[in-house]
């Protein structure tokens, strides 16, 4: 068989496999055209914003998640009971048990098929602050994306994550914590 024939056969097999994978994964994204991932970044909200005094107005419903820094996260943490704010730790169960933000519940994005229901029990109108390890960790963003797809519109991603929180504060809870 000539090289050209071999290459053609290989390409046809690849196209068929690609189409098969598309069907098997139920992907509904367009074959062609402009496509880009959901933009998660709404304008970052910092402690300097006056609106932080009232989280309800600062975190209006949006199709993207807000990114918050440590100071803003600490304010939200203080106000969590009065303002219906929930903290969600997107890391692995073992890391969560070793230490987490007090009051945070664990919804490991790596086990979202198992933990997803726990997240979906949260009211959709409440503000949900999600974090993971910080730095290169993308679990909080992945979880925020999952939540946006489920119809949640008030999401904040604490980008500094556990690394920054545990370094800068003494507010640490260990064990199973909130369920």
């Amino acid at each position: 068989m000539s090289l050209a024939k071999q290459l053609s056969t290989l390409m046809i097999a690849a196209v068929l496999l690609g189409l098969g994978a598309r069907v098997a994964t139920h992907s509904d994204l367009p074959f062609w055209g402009h496509w880009e991932p959901i933009k998660l970044v709404a304008p970052p909200i910092s402690i300097a914003d006056d609106a932080m005094a009232k989280p309800d107005s600062a975190f209006a419903k949006s199709t993207s998640a807000y990114e918050v820094n440590l100071a803003a996260t600490m304010v939200l943490h203080m106000k969590r009971n009065k303002s219906n704010i929930h903290f969600v730790d997107a890391r692995e169960d073992t890391l969560y048990k070793a230490g987490h933000i007090p009051g945070a519940m664990n919804v490991s994005f790596d086990h979202i098929d198992k933990d997803g229901d726990k997240f979906l029990a949260l009211p959709k109108d409440d503000l949900i602050v999600i974090y993971c390890d910080g730095g290169d960790c993308h679990l909080s963003h992945d979880l925020a994306e999952f939540a946006l797809a489920q119809g949640y519109g008030r999401l904040a991603v604490f980008t500094g994550g556990w690394a920054e929180w545990s370094k800068e504060t003494d507010l640490i809870e260990t064990g199973s914590g909130a369920k």
Binding site: L10, M11, A14, V15, L17, G18, L19, A21, R22, S27, L29, P30, F31, W32, G33, H34, W35, E36
Partner: peptide, 14 residues
């Protein structure tokens, strides 16, 4: 960047 999704599907298949 219109090629992005098509590439994402067929490159791994290839």
């Amino acid at each position: 960047q219109d090629y992005v999704y098509l590439t994402a599907m067929f490159l791994p298949a290839l």
